[in-house]
Lab assay of single mutants.
Amino acid sequence: MSIQHFRVALIPFFAAFCLPVFAHPETLVKVKDAEDQLGARVGYIELDLNSGKILESFRPEERFPMMSTFKVLLCGAVLSRVDAGQEQLGRRIHYSQNDLVEYSPVTEKHLTDGMTVRELCSAAITMSDNTAANLLLTTIGGPKELTAFLHNMGDHVTRLDRWEPELNEAIPNDERDTTMPAAMATTLRKLLTGELLTLASRQQLIDWMEADKVAGPLLRSALPAGWFIADKSGAGERGSRGIIAALGPDGKPSRIVVIYTTGSQATMDERNRQIAEIGASLIKHW
Rank of each mutant, 00 (worst) to 15 (best):
Y95W: 10
D113L: 08
S2Q: 13
R91T: 08
A123V: 07
G239S: 04
D161I: 04
G216H: 08
G263E: 06
L146Q: 04
N152V: 10
T186C: 15
T112E: 15
P143N: 04
A235L: 05
K109C: 09
V8K: 15
A148T: 14
L111E: 07
N134L: 02
L160S: 11
I11C: 13
L49M: 15
A225V: 13
L160N: 07
Y260C: 04
A132S: 08
L89C: 05
Y95T: 03
N152R: 15
V21E: 05
F228P: 01
D99K: 08
L192E: 02
W286M: 07
A235Y: 02
K213A: 15
D269Q: 12
R81V: 06
M66E: 02
G263H: 07
L136M: 07
E108H: 10
E102Q: 15
I256S: 01
L111M: 13
Q88G: 10
H110G: 08
Q37N: 15
D113R: 10
L192F: 12
E87R: 02
F70V: 12
A84H: 12
T69D: 00
K30H: 08
P105W: 04
T112H: 14
S240F: 03
Q204Y: 09
G141F: 04
H151I: 10
L49C: 08
I229V: 10
H5I: 06
L19F: 15
V157A: 13
L55Y: 11
T178E: 02
A40Y: 03
H94A: 10
H285A: 09
A266D: 09
R118M: 10
R59V: 01
L196N: 15
P217D: 14
T69M: 03
V78G: 01
S221I: 10
H156D: 14
H285C: 11
A215V: 04
S80N: 12
R63M: 07
L197P: 03
I275R: 00
I125Q: 02
A266T: 13
A246D: 03
G236M: 02
M209T: 02
Q204D: 09
D36Y: 12
G52R: 05
K32E: 09
G234T: 00
M67R: 01
L218Q: 03
G85Y: 08
A9G: 11
M1Q: 01
D207M: 11
S96C: 10
I45D: 02
T27N: 05
L10Y: 09
G142Y: 02
V78K: 02
D33E: 13
